[in-house]
Lab assay of single mutants.
Amino acid sequence: NQASVVANQLIPINTALTLVMMRSEVVTPVGIPAEDIPRLVSMQVSRAVPLGTTLMPDMVKGYA
């Protein structure tokens, strides 16, 4: 089972991601792979992401 990136806190719209905002977790459906966490740092979210939400490619500007 592949771990995905999950929000560790509420991430407001247009916030630049930092390591403390993200954790890896095995979830369904699968989201952005956990190994991409270093690449996500400083990228902005395109919408508010609630705590515990799996990050999907369309939620991060410039990821897809």
Rank of each mutant, 00 (worst) to 15 (best):
Asn8Ala: 13
Gln9Ile: 14
Thr54Asp: 00
Tyr63Thr: 03
Asn1Asp: 15
Val49Ala: 07
Pro38Ser: 11
Met43Gly: 03
Thr54Glu: 01
Lys61Val: 14
Met22Gln: 00
Val27Trp: 03
Gly62Thr: 05
Arg23His: 04
Lys61Ser: 13
Ser46Arg: 12
Val27Cys: 06
Arg23Tyr: 05
Pro57Cys: 13
Thr54Lys: 05
Glu25His: 07
Pro38Glu: 10
Leu19Tyr: 14
Val5Asp: 00
Pro29Met: 05
Ile37Gly: 05
Gly31Lys: 00
Val41Gly: 02
Leu19Glu: 04
Thr54Phe: 03
Val5Lys: 01
Asp58His: 06
Glu35Lys: 07
Pro12Lys: 07
Val41Lys: 05
Leu55Met: 13
Val26Trp: 10
Ile37Val: 08
Arg47Cys: 04
Asn1Cys: 06
Val5Asn: 01
Ile13Asn: 13
Val30Met: 14
Val6Phe: 02
Gly52Trp: 05
Asn1Ser: 14
Met56Trp: 08
Asn14Tyr: 09
Ile37Thr: 08
Asp58Asn: 15
Asn1Trp: 13
Asn8Phe: 06
Leu55Gly: 00
Val27Glu: 02
Ile13Phe: 10
Thr15Gly: 05
Gln2Lys: 05
Thr53Val: 15
Leu55Thr: 01
Ser24Gly: 09
Val26Ala: 13
Arg47Glu: 15
Arg39Ala: 07
Ile13Cys: 05
Ile32Ser: 01
Gly31Gln: 02
Val30His: 10
Leu40Trp: 02
Met43Ala: 06
Lys61Glu: 07
Ala64Met: 15
Ser4Glu: 00
Val60Arg: 01
Lys61Leu: 09
Val60Leu: 10
Pro12Asp: 12
Leu55Lys: 01
Ala34Asp: 11
Ser4Leu: 02
Val49Leu: 10
Val41Ala: 07
Gln2Cys: 10
Ala64Trp: 04
Pro12Met: 07
Arg39Phe: 11
Ala16Thr: 06
Thr53Met: 14
Val45Trp: 00
Val30Phe: 10
Thr28Gln: 09
Thr28Lys: 04
Asn14Met: 07
Ser24Ala: 13
Val49Glu: 02
Tyr63Asn: 03
Ser24Met: 11
Pro29Phe: 04
Val49Ile: 14
Pro57Asp: 09
Met59Thr: 06
Leu40Gln: 00
Pro57Glu: 12
Leu10Ser: 12
Val30Ala: 10
Pro12Leu: 08
Asn1Gln: 15
Asn14Ile: 03
Gly52Val: 02
Leu55Val: 12
